[in-house]
Design a protein around this nucleic acid. Structure first.
Lengths: 139, 139
DNA sequence: CTTGTTGCAAATTCTTTGCATGACA
DNA sequence: TGTCATGCAAAGAATTTGCAACAAG
């Protein structure tokens, strides 16, 4: 069954789920569910792939992680610190990420939305390139 | 085999591929490969799903279509008119799309990139919501 | 005990590929 | 006649789900 909120809105405790979150917090880069699972198993955590998927889906639905989609249709997750909505510039080679200052975009989105007649508009802004380090490594 | 360019850089003629492009031009909304295939078959065109996929991949690689990725990891395509790079506001319900004025974002992207040290940066800006018509239909 | 969580394997969904066939230059 | 496009079925890849075993309150 999928995790359910208890009366006070908190998720019921769970070693595994906690472990997933901890593993995610441990990195500053976007990782896929499978990568995260492999990493956890490699570090000795006994956990199933499904549980990792379930934990990440929960985290996504409750807005605790940022998500990007590679062109392959694979999702990559990154723990969201500070609880704010952010956008990132992600390296296509090493998946390192750096948050970018995105106020201008937020403002633009708001103006476009208000003029469109659309409701419940969500936005995705993804930037990906090759970071300076990987550029050097490519030589 | 995958389509190959001839000496003059043009794709070799092909009924099927042309048919895919025509079918795509026939709509103003983003469609998935499978939807497009079903539509073509329903209209009497004899064509295989693989061919639709191949044609769309070609079109994507040569920049003749705009692509968005639904949260499901499924790609949706829309014929690009006028050859310019555009961004769209897409309805989550009916997939109707309207291009948005995106100069502000392009400028923002350029400034972020120049300050980052990243190279070969690509950007994705996707806006999705519920269009006015589908809002009314929901009542 | 009862309820929610986990893991495994099977099932889904979207997309790509291998290969024999068919069509056009 | 040779080359490339096509279709079908099989292969792949990422993710979800059914279900029995299990852990915790």
């Amino acid at each position: 069954m999928s995790p359910v909120s208890t009366a006070d809105g908190q998720l019921r405790p769970s070693h595994r789920r906690t472990a997933v979150v901890e593993a995610l917090k441990g990195g500053n880069r976007f990782v896929s569910a499978q990568e995260l699972h492999m990493r956890m198993v490699a570090e000795g955590t006994r956990i199933g792939l499904s549980t990792v998927y379930r934990a990440l889906r929960d985290a996504e639905e409750t807005g605790r992680v940022d998500v990007v989609q590679a062109g392959t249709g694979e999702k990559r997750y990154r723990w969201r610190r500070g609880g704010e909505h952010r956008h990132y510039l992600v390296c296509r080679v090493c998946a390192a990420s750096r948050p970018v200052e995105a106020e201008a975009v937020e403002a633009w989105v708001a103006s476009v939305v208000s003029a469109s007649g659309f409701a419940a508009v969500e936005h995705t802004v993804e930037l990906d390139g090759v970071c300076a380090r990987c550029q050097r490594a490519a030589d």
